[in-house]
Simulated scan of single mutants.
Amino acid sequence: MGKTIVFYGVYQIAIFAFLSLFDSARKDSVLLKIKLVKIGILRSEYNKPFNDLEILHNRYTTSNLLINKVDKSDIDEIYGNYQQYIEGTIDKEFYEFYLKNKLILLEDRYEYYDLAWRLSLILRKCK
């Protein structure tokens, strides 16, 4: 009985550590995208170029690192909308609406990783 309790305790600590690290990495990546969108909004308001986005997009598309598909998709989407704005395919109003809407979605995702129930495997699978 004692070994079972010790094993269960070690198991719980390992799960807690793994999920905490995983969620921290996801929060970090979402925070980067929030920063990009906020910079995009600011640059759009003052009609300034967004060179940082091109550099980041190039790094994501040419990197050999393991990059989350959702992160890559979000960066591609943000970059694609920026390119359409620069080319004149979409107007400033639509571009700013897109950025502000994306910001709301990303901030919601960021807050999602702070929820305490995320540290439970069962609740994580049910949600």
Rank of each mutant, 00 (worst) to 15 (best):
A14G: 12
A14S: 14
F16R: 12
F16W: 15
A17Q: 03
F18N: 03
L19Q: 12
S20I: 04
L21R: 11
L21V: 12
F22T: 11
D23H: 10
S24Q: 12
S24G: 11
A25E: 13
A25C: 09
R26L: 08
R26G: 05
D28Y: 10
S29I: 09
V30S: 06
V30M: 07
L32S: 03
L32Q: 07
L32Y: 00
L32M: 03
K33D: 03
K33S: 04
K33L: 10
K33Y: 02
I34W: 02
I34V: 15
K35R: 14
K35M: 03
L36G: 05
V37S: 02
K38A: 11
K38E: 13
K38W: 05
I39V: 14
I39P: 00
G40K: 02
I41W: 05
I41H: 02
I41K: 06
L42G: 13
L42A: 15
R43H: 10
S44C: 06
S44N: 08
E45C: 01
E45A: 03
Y46H: 05
Y46G: 02
K48T: 10
K48I: 09
K48V: 12
P49N: 09
P49W: 03
F50M: 03
F50V: 04
N51K: 13
D52L: 15
D52K: 14
D52T: 14
D52A: 11
D52Y: 14
L53E: 00
L53F: 04
L53G: 07
L53I: 12
E54G: 12
I55W: 05
H57Y: 15
H57T: 02
N58M: 12
N58A: 09
R59G: 00
Y60T: 00
Y60N: 01
T61A: 03
T62H: 11
T62S: 15
T62L: 13
T62V: 15
S63N: 04
L65P: 02
L65F: 03
L65C: 04
L66C: 02
L66D: 08
I67W: 01
I67E: 08
I67F: 02
N68R: 07
N68H: 15
N68A: 04
N68F: 01
N68M: 01
K69C: 07
K69N: 06
K69S: 13
K72I: 01
K72Y: 00
K72H: 05
S73V: 04
S73Y: 09
D74W: 01
I75L: 06
I75G: 00
I75K: 02
I75S: 04
D76M: 08
E77D: 14
E77A: 10
I78D: 01
I78C: 02
I78L: 05
I78F: 09
Y79W: 11
G80P: 03
G80H: 07
G80E: 00
Y82A: 08
Y82V: 05
Y82D: 06
Q83P: 05
Q83H: 06
Q83M: 14
Q84V: 12
Q84M: 15
Y85N: 10
Y85D: 07
Y85H: 10
I86C: 10
E87Y: 09
G88H: 04
G88M: 08
T89H: 13
T89Q: 14
